[in-house]
Amino acid sequence: MRIKASIEKVPGGMMVVPLLLAATLNTVAPDLLRIGNFTQALFVDGASTLIALFLLCTGAQINLRNVGVSLGKGATLLTTKWIVGAIFGLVAYMLAGDSGLWLGLAPIAIIAAMTNSNGGLYVALVGQYGDKTDRAAYSLLALNDGPFFTMVALSIFGAMGFVDGLFSFVSFIAVLLPIIVGMVLGNLDEEMRKFFDKGSSMLIPFFAFALGMGIDFGAIIEGGLSGIVLGLATVFLTGTAGFFVFKAFKWNPIAGAAEGSTAGNAVATPAAIAAASASFASHVDLATVQVAASTVTTAILLPLYIGFLVKRLEKKGVKVPDDYVIE
């Protein structure tokens, strides 16, 4: 059987197929693989560990001469996504009706969903369509985890005061450390670099499956049409903006588009903000389900959108990632 070849016929197949398979399984039979021991550790709870190992393998491929490129890409992605999400949120605040909603969307949900990104999804996509500098850019992207940048946007709007303590420097270092360990080993020993290179592609379907086991299609139903619209806006606005910004810098535009998602941890952002300012309490429940729906929608749609963009570039004679690889 040509299993690998069949999976790769699907755009982003090595990531998309396992993720959707797991999400379907988690929706219809969530306890099937939650039986403890090695099975649950690998297929359900293993996403963080597998991604950490993937980042270590990726870090080993980084030549110290290219560190500045990775940081530049990470900072550019972080800034682009935040600006687009903040502007869209500001428009929502300006056009919101008496209910405080715009087109049924809570502005706080818009900012939370659009300024936060799914790091695992990004890593999986650039693992297939990017190079080592695109993967290493993830070290900076960890900064948009949680409510920190949502709070910054809200403080700029004058909607609330800035609140300290929402970003943990230790958490940032915890994300960065596996990449650093891999980078040190790879630069000290070329054989170690070659050894770890094997893990960069092999790990993708495994952590994609584990990520899928955290997705419940029921969240789309609960979040309603507004949550789906929020997911669509996140993919097509922040993803497309990243695509064109990276293209302008002559970097791989697919890596720029790979940030167009909403992370699962963004679901907790509305509650965290409401805890800091009671003025947001009235929209917490609605915002939470809308962000959850956006998380699921982007996890499904973004890989398909990336596949479309790759084919579009290939029709123009551009090979992804070969034409953008930095040696």
Rank of each mutant, 00 (worst) to 15 (best):
V181H: 03
A5I: 01
N66W: 06
A23S: 14
L166S: 12
I87M: 06
G119Y: 03
I7T: 06
V235Y: 04
G85A: 08
T238M: 02
F236Q: 05
V175S: 06
Y122E: 12
D197Y: 06
S277H: 12
L71Y: 11
A233N: 04
G119N: 09
V69D: 09
G231W: 04
G85V: 05
G242H: 12
S70C: 13
S277L: 09
N26H: 01
L78W: 14
Y324G: 10
A60M: 08
G186V: 07
G59Y: 02
A272M: 13
A41Q: 04
W82D: 01
S279A: 15
A92P: 05
S117G: 09
T58P: 01
Y324E: 12
N116P: 06
V320K: 11
G46Y: 08
N265T: 14
S6L: 14
D98Y: 04
K311H: 11
F207Q: 03
A124V: 01
F149I: 12
F43M: 12
T262P: 06
N252E: 07
A86C: 10
I87P: 03
A174D: 15
T297N: 02
N144T: 12
F148V: 11
G36E: 07
V267K: 01
A106H: 00
E191S: 15
S294F: 08
S171A: 15
A299Q: 05
G317W: 05
A137L: 07
A153Y: 09
A287W: 02
G242M: 10
M94E: 12
F280L: 13
V291L: 05
S294W: 02
A29N: 00
A276L: 08
D45K: 02
T240E: 04
G68N: 09
Q290E: 12
S282M: 09
F162C: 10
L166H: 13
L166P: 10
E8K: 13
G199A: 14
F244H: 11
L166K: 14
K194S: 09
D145V: 08
F249S: 04
G13Q: 02
D131R: 09
L101K: 09
F38V: 13
G256E: 03
A255L: 05
S168P: 10
F43C: 07
L32R: 00
P30H: 00
A153V: 12
Y305V: 11
N63P: 02
N144E: 15
